[in-house]
């Protein structure tokens, strides 16, 4: 029987309730979260139990912040005293678990909860999403000419690029709308409203991208365009290889932060390596698959 399980969790950084509920469900089935190495979540087998999970946010503790971080340590100390044990952190989100039957909630002030979520997202999520939105929009506009050519493959490619460009824009806009509504609600002294529905929207986008990609590959092969098989093989190899690069760089980032490298040095090295590895991957696949 396997003692470890690795999952790709479709959860958004802002969706604190989604994360808490997902981890509680997994613990009830006998899987406890151990660590997160983006984009993968690692679980270990344990006795099925009702474990309470709660998250809070530290805007100053990012993925590349050197460890141990005094802010995170101070938070851990307060939480440990209340029975909440630190599990791990993810891009500013601090995940805690508590096995007591009716624990004191981690957050008891909705204004402070919302403030911490928003500051963390401004710092660690909005920037990358804006870059993603600009890059995908540019990619879409640059390929607009060829995407307008007739044929099912081109139509699916058009829809795929459009989806890719719309996803970060939609995610940013929906988050912004949720934040404005949540701020008004919290100012009236009410509970911070859930944003789990936004995760469902982004999951829908991901599902649409996967379906469109599969349809696009099928259409490329069906149309019998010159070198169709090689093109399909190129794309099928590129995606897992790209995911492997992301995972390796994530491990490297964790190793560097554990060794006390500054966040700037950590990000500098990781971004440089990302460019080099992606370029090398493209060259290798072009040489040995696309133009073989």
């Amino acid at each position: 029987m396997k003692d470890r399980r690795i999952a790709y969790e479709l959860l958004e950084l802002y969706d604190w309730q989604g994360v808490e509920r997902r981890l509680e469900r997994r613990a009830a089935k006998g899987w406890r979260l151990e660590k997160i190495v983006s984009p993968l979540w690692y679980y270990r087998r344990a006795k099925p139990a009702q474990v309470h999970y709660a998250v809070t946010y530290l805007p100053n503790v990012g993925e590349a912040t050197p460890r141990p971080d005094p802010e995170a340590q101070a938070l851990d100390a307060v939480c440990t005293a209340a029975g909440w044990e630190k599990v791990c952190d993810w891009n500013g989100m601090q995940i805690f678990a508590n096995e007591q039957p009716d624990p004191l909630p981690l957050e008891t002030d909705e204004r402070l909860r919302l403030q911490a979520i928003h500051q963390t997202l401004k710092r660690h999520w909005m920037g990358p999403m804006v870059i993603l939105a600009v890059l995908f929009s540019l990619l879409f506009l640059l390929n607009l000419g060829s995407l307008r050519e007739p044929g099912p493959a081109q139509r699916f490619a058009f829809a795929l690029f459009l989806c890719g460009a719309l996803y970060p824009i939609a995610d940013l806009c929906l988050y912004g709308l949720w934040y404005l509504r949540a701020r008004r609600t919290v100012e009236r002294g009410k509970k911070c409203p859930s944003n789990h529905a936004l995760t469902l929207v982004s999951t829908g986008f991901c599902a649409a991208v996967i379906v469109l990609f599969v349809l696009f590959l099928a259409a490329v092969l069906w149309q019998g365009l010159p070198g169709a098989g090689r093109r399909a093989a190129y794309m099928l190899l590129y995606i897992p290889a790209y995911m492997a690069i992301v995972w390796c760089l994530s491990r490297l980032r964790i190793a560097l932060r554990e060794r006390g490298f500054s966040a700037a040095a950590n990000w500098g090295l990781v971004i440089l390596l990302a460019f080099v590895l992606c370029f090398a991957l493209q060259m290798l696949l072009a040489q040995f698959v696309l133009y073989a």
């Binding site: 709660a54 809070t56 307060v78 601090q94 004191l104 909630p105 981690l106 002030d109």
Partner: peptide, 22 residues
């Protein structure tokens, strides 16, 4: 956390995350 709970007879609940942010 302990003092707040004692002073208020448990009427004011102060979560550790909230206390840290405060």
């Amino acid at each position: 956390m302990e003092q707040v709970s004692r002073l208020t007879g448990g009427a004011v609940r102060l979560g550790p995350g909230t206390l840290y942010h405060l």
